[in-house]
Simulated scan of single mutants.
Amino acid sequence: MNITSLPIKIEEKTWLEYTLTNDSGMSVSFLNFGGIITKMMVPDKNNQFENVVIGFRDYDNYLNNKNYFGALIGRVAGRIEGAQFSLGEKTYTLPANDGDNSLHGGPGGLHARTWEVETIETPTSVGAVLYHTSLDGDQGYPGTVKYKVSYTLTNANDFEISYEAISDQDTVLTLTNHSYFNLSGDLKDTILNHEVTMNASQFVELDHALIPTGNILPVTDTVFDFRNGRKILDGTLSGDPQNQLALDGYDHFFIFDQTKDDDQITLKDASSGRQLTVTTDQPGVVMYTSNNLDDSLQLNEARSKKYLGVCLETQSSPASVTHDGFPSIHLAAHEVYRKKTTFSFES
Rank of each mutant, 00 (worst) to 15 (best):
T277K: 13
A200T: 01
D269L: 10
L233S: 11
P212Q: 05
Q282I: 08
D225F: 05
F254T: 00
N157L: 03
D269R: 08
A200G: 00
I191S: 00
D158P: 01
A156H: 13
T222F: 06
G273C: 06
S271T: 14
T171A: 06
I191N: 02
T197N: 04
T174R: 01
L183I: 10
T222P: 04
D257V: 07
D240F: 13
D170Q: 13
D240E: 15
T190Y: 08
I191F: 07
D168V: 05
D281M: 04
E205N: 07
N215L: 12
G273R: 01
D248P: 06
L237A: 10
L233K: 13
I216K: 09
T222E: 06
N199F: 11
Q275V: 12
L267E: 03
V223G: 00
A246I: 00
Q202W: 07
S272I: 09
S272C: 09
D186H: 08
G273P: 11
D251M: 01
K268Y: 13
G249L: 02
A246Q: 04
D225L: 03
V219Q: 03
D207H: 14
Y180D: 03
T176E: 02
T174N: 05
S201P: 11
Y180M: 05
V172Y: 08
Y250S: 04
F253Q: 09
L183D: 11
D221I: 12
F254R: 01
T222S: 13
R227C: 06
N177G: 14
D170K: 09
L245P: 08
S201Y: 11
Q169P: 03
L210K: 05
T190K: 09
S184A: 15
E160D: 14
D207V: 08
N228C: 11
F181K: 04
L237I: 10
I161T: 09
I265R: 06
D261K: 15
N193W: 10
E205W: 07
S272Y: 05
G229N: 08
Q275S: 10
I232P: 03
L210I: 06
T277W: 04
G235A: 12
N243I: 04
A200H: 00
A270C: 04
S271G: 07
G235E: 03
S167M: 07
I216Q: 10
S179C: 12
I232L: 15
V204A: 10
K231R: 15
G214D: 02
Q258D: 15
L206W: 02
D225A: 10
I216W: 07
Q169S: 14
G249A: 14
T266S: 12
E205A: 06
M198D: 03
L187M: 15
Q169V: 08
S167Q: 09
T171P: 12
R227I: 04
I166W: 02
T259F: 07
L175C: 10
N215W: 06
V204R: 04
D269I: 02
D248G: 08
S238C: 03
I166N: 02
K268F: 13
L267M: 07
F159N: 00
L217P: 05
P218C: 04
T222Q: 03
